[in-house]
Design a protein around this nucleic acid. Structure first.
Lengths: 158, 158
DNA sequence: CTATGCTCGTTTACATGTCAATAAAATCTC
DNA sequence: GAGATTTTATTGACATGTAAACGAGCATAG
């Protein structure tokens, strides 16, 4: 694929690549920070929102901690901790898992559903204002194309 | 600019926007996590690397904590804490500021310069492998164009 | 059955970030 | 110059993330 930079010499970026890299970083930071900022106004952090919006899609709005962590790409440790904090706020509940004596079920609590409804509107508005409304059809296609090139792990450790 | 979504109705994303938003998220997470992962092998965290690479560009490799924080977009509190940790590892030094009795100067220490040299090679290689090498000239231009649309704050709070 | 190993969720210890309050020095106002 | 205000860096209290060790329950081989 890339015939550039094959030798043993140190790697480098040409000017266009450098410019694009800086632009990439600036863009990702701006959008990410912006959405997190907007979301905070609804009383949920971004991790909170992730947990709730993933959980609401599970059957019965219920999921094993293990399965939920898997689905979110989190460690069980992280989710366990965060679940503890969210349980204290009554956004979710922890029930024993009838199918596995070790496990527990995370259940979306009424308060969590309310919070999610509010936050979803805020989140959508934020994504529109900071992302979708600024882009035209061509931009969207370009993003999908480029994401396809950047989103997978490197072919080899090299 | 955008004549879509002007009314009082709830905001929404059409399918293309939704797909692009997911692609955008996937891409940013993959690249960011990948670079951080590679950098860790050199013994520096990403914040460490930011501090050192910003500091090395300052005159005399020295900068007020205030100025440094400004340049990095960090709070002084954050930089003060991180500087403390880096000072303990002898990557940087804190000297009193002769021009301002309150201030302090962050100075790049020899160990920090060494660490930065190693990390820079690793970082560059990582950016090549995970970013530049995967993209062609058109991709790079598209990124710069799209970044221009996404990187600034919203026109109004609305 | 039972012994061995694996998986589950939690916990401990620590690294890191935020925000508000602080102390000290500079700056401004009169 | 004296006094009020601002600025600077640090700190305390806390929220959040990671990694490794843990105890308890499950599962499989024999």
């Amino acid at each position: 694929m890339s015939t550039k930079r094959m030798g043993s010499a140190a790697p480098w970026l040409n000017e266009d690549e450098e410019v694009a890299w800086r632009a990439f970083r600036r863009m990702t930071i701006a959008v990410q920070a912006g959405v997190v900022h907007d979301l905070a106004a609804s009383g949920l952090s971004e991790p909170d929102y992730e947990v709730l919006s993933t959980l609401v899609e599970a059957p019965e709005m219920t999921s094993t901690l293990h399965a939920q962590a898997q689905k979110m790409g989190w460690s069980r440790s992280r989710l366990s901790r965060h679940a503890g904090r969210m349980e204290a706020r009554e956004l979710i509940r922890r029930d024993p898992d009838p199918a596995d004596g070790r496990g527990c079920l995370l259940v979306l609590a009424p308060l969590g559903l309310d919070a999610l409804r509010g936050a979803t509107a805020v989140h959508l508005e934020s994504v529109c204002r900071r992302f979708a409304d600024r882009l035209d059809a061509r931009d969207l296609l370009d993003i999908v194309r480029i994401s396809g090139k950047l989103s997978h792990a490197p072919e080899s450790a090299l």
